[in-house]
Simulated scan of single mutants.
Amino acid sequence: MATITHDAVEDRQRQAPALIRYLAPGDFVTRRYVRAGAEINTGEYRDYEAVVRDGMPIRDHFAFDTHGFMIGKGPSAIEDFWNREEVDEKYHAEAARIIRNLTGADRVATQG
């Protein structure tokens, strides 16, 4: 089981309460069936209280090895992030390039 790391520097950041929905504990195999107009999940999902913090001021604090994620920055050629066509055309390739540069990964798969 993964261990959640916590550091006092995180508590000093801007924060807000939130509800996050994810899979409830249980002894079952989770499957999701989808067809036009309907879907069935065999697992049970619940809302859990959480605290969401602004990680940008401490982005260098987070590392894959310690936290399981990192916050990176990179330039973008996208001029209007509200323009779906422009985002679809450019963003995935840009994100993959930035992730490869930050992590040294040989391959990166992006999704919408």
Rank of each mutant, 00 (worst) to 15 (best):
V87M: 08
R21K: 14
R59N: 09
R21Y: 07
R46M: 08
G55R: 09
R21P: 05
A2C: 03
H92I: 02
Y91I: 01
E10V: 13
P17T: 02
Q13N: 07
E85M: 04
P75S: 06
A77S: 08
G26R: 06
D27S: 06
V87H: 10
R35V: 02
I71T: 12
A16P: 00
I71N: 09
T5C: 02
G68T: 05
H61Y: 12
D47C: 02
E94K: 12
G104N: 05
A96V: 11
F62L: 01
L19G: 03
P75H: 09
E44Q: 15
A36H: 05
D11P: 00
R21A: 13
G72Q: 05
G26Q: 01
A77C: 06
A77F: 01
G112C: 08
T5I: 05
H67L: 01
A8I: 11
D80C: 06
T3M: 04
H92N: 15
S76W: 07
E44L: 14
A36Q: 09
P25Y: 03
E79P: 01
V52T: 12
E94N: 07
I71W: 03
I20V: 14
I58Y: 02
N101I: 03
A38R: 08
K90Q: 15
D54M: 12
D54W: 12
F64H: 14
F81D: 07
A96F: 06
V108H: 09
T42C: 04
E89F: 06
D65E: 15
A96P: 00
T5R: 12
E44W: 07
V9G: 00
Q15F: 10
D47V: 00
